[in-house]
Design a protein around this nucleic acid. Structure first.
Length: 447
RNA sequence: GGUUCCUUAGCCAAGUGGUAAGGCAACAGACUGCAACUCUGUGAGCGCCGGUUCGACUCCGGCAGGAACCUCCA
């Protein structure tokens, strides 16, 4: 039984799918006006691991994640570069997908775009207007938050408290909104790309697209809706409100949010100038290390990205990978072919940790424990290769759930000759020759 | 001001109403020709103050410190 923390109920709940054996999952994608940063990489990895976990537990998963390809930032960038919004959007969509591949994440099954969903978005907004949940003011259309008595149930914000508390920060200037928390569904604009609508030329607001894309691609209610913590309010709250208004349900059974990434203990922000691009990080650290680092902290806790945390992760990962490599090499030297069998007990223990709201820190402890068993076996006089192989395969399966790839080394004849010459030199107590051979073996990663 | 969350050994980080996983670092021992790798062992009573309880780090209240969000940043 997989259990997940549900932001809506503030509790860890047993996961019960809408359709037996299947999971419909939607994760809010990026506005494509720039490259993906390391903060964007976290939900990519977190929800990829969640998908892999479901699959490991026998579910099928339909994973949808959108691209917001209409936005002021994109419009501005297009104007700046003297090109079209489509060119800008496509550039960063490609870059985003590249990062997904670099991170060894399974690409979403469907990646809908706003520009390709425009008819449905306009129809959806029209439905909200006609049902009295939205209203037009001078070509803008706003959703009336007061029309949804459940407004606030996702983020646990109460409208009256919001108004009382944040009045200074809410723009109350006369834009015609009935409630300052009413949000734009349609924006009148004379700048950049625009579409015809019943309310004149304009472009859609941000909060509607996800609802429409979910309804289009997955149905009126899905199992999991995911994204970063920062999307809880207002974005997810507003999505739920619209769905409540039209379909009288809150869109998703489980709302899952990952915590943010900090850089050297500070929030990553443009003003601090400490943005790390995901592609740079992956190029520098490699796929496995990036994923190991991200999963080393529980997904609902802040992840600090610093030299120290990177170095610790590097040592940890090496501690895991080295024995696996050694097990493969030594087994080949011993002439053991290996099987596909794996140790079910340790793998089950790993999955049990993962099932518990993706408790990756505990899952890591199982990995270390299993690695230790491999090391202990490798130290014995007559190595039981069958056992080694089972534990080795078990760890490989665990790492696969985490999206970490283990490559199987192939021992060549030259490698064997090198091992032979090392052993021969040692037998002859020819330490200079032995050290030279050993040095080569270590350089080739064979020792 | 409001909402939600966090505070565990030098650092990172789990966890349970009954006397604290794991990792990094450190120290000691073993293995080794020496070394690396590896193995074995060593450390905290869980922010502070109250309360509930036979018993709390774990539940409740308060305080202190910190984080995120409060109209488009994952």
């Amino acid at each position: 039984m997989i259990r997940l923390y549900n932001t809506r109920t503030l509790q860890i709940e047993d996961f019960k799918p809408i359709h037996e054996g299947h999971v419909d999952m939607y994760v809010c994608g990026p506005t494509v006006y720039n490259y993906a940063h390391i903060g964007n990489a976290r939900p990519m990895i977190v929800f990829d691991v969640l998908k892999r976990l479901f699959e490991a537990e026998g579910y099928t998963v339909t994973y949808v994640s959108n691209f917001t390809d209409v936005d002021d930032k994109i419009i501005n960038k297009a104007a700046q570069e003297g090109t079209t919004e489509a060119v800008i959007a496509q550039r960063y969509i490609d870059a985003y997908q590249d990062v997904r591949k670099q991170l060894n994440t399974e690409l979403p099954d469907i990646t809908p775009r706003v520009t390709q969903t425009m008819d449905q978005i306009i129809a959806f907004i029209d439905g909200l207007v006609k049902s009295g949940h939205a209203y037009e003011v001078n070509g803008d259309v706003y959703f009336s938050v007061d029309s949804d008595p459940k407004y606030g149930e996702i983020s646990h914000q109460k409208l009256d408290q919001l108004e009382a508390g944040a009045s200074e920060r809410v723009d109350q200037t006369g834009d015609g909104k009935r409630n300052p928390y009413d949000f734009a569904l349609w924006k009148k604009t004379d700048k950049g790309i625009q579409w015809d609508s019943p309310w004149g030329k304009g472009r859609p607001g941000w909060h509607t697209e996800c609802v429409v894309m979910i309804n289009n691609n997955l149905g009126e209610k899905i199992d999991i809706h995911g994204g970063g913590m920062d999307l809880k309010f207002p974005h997810h709250e507003n999505e739920a409100a619209q769905q409540e208004a039209i379909h009288h349900n809150c869109l998703a059974n489980y709302w899952i949010h990952n915590a943010m990434v900090n850089i050297n203990g500070e929030k990553m922000s443009k003003s601090l100038g400490n943005t790390l691009w995901a592609k740079d990080v992956v190029n520098q650290l490699g796929t496995n290390l990036t994923r190991w680092l991200v999963s080393s902290v529980h997904y609902r806790k802040e992840l600090n990205f610093s030299d120290e945390t990177v170095e610790t992760a590097r040592k940890e990962l090496e501690k895991v990978m080295k024995p696996l490599r050694q097990a493969d090499i030594k087994a080949q030297l011993a002439g053991y072919a290996g099987t596909d069998e794996y140790d079910q007990e340790s793998y089950r223990a790993f999955l049990d940790c993962m099932d518990d709201d993706m408790n990756t820190p505990n899952a890591y402890a199982v990995i270390f424990d299993t690695i230790k068993k491999i090391n202990q076996l490798l130290r014995t006089k007559d190595v039981n290769w069958e056992e080694v192989s089972k534990y080795r395969n078990s760890v490989v399966k665990m790492l696969d759930v985490l999206g970490i790839v283990v490559e199987k080394p192939v021992v060549t004849d030259a490698d064997r000759a090198l091992f032979d010459s090392w052993n021969k030199a040692k037998a002859e107590k020819n330490w200079d020759a032995a050290d030279a051979a050993r040095k080569q073996l270590m350089e080739k990663g064979l020792l």
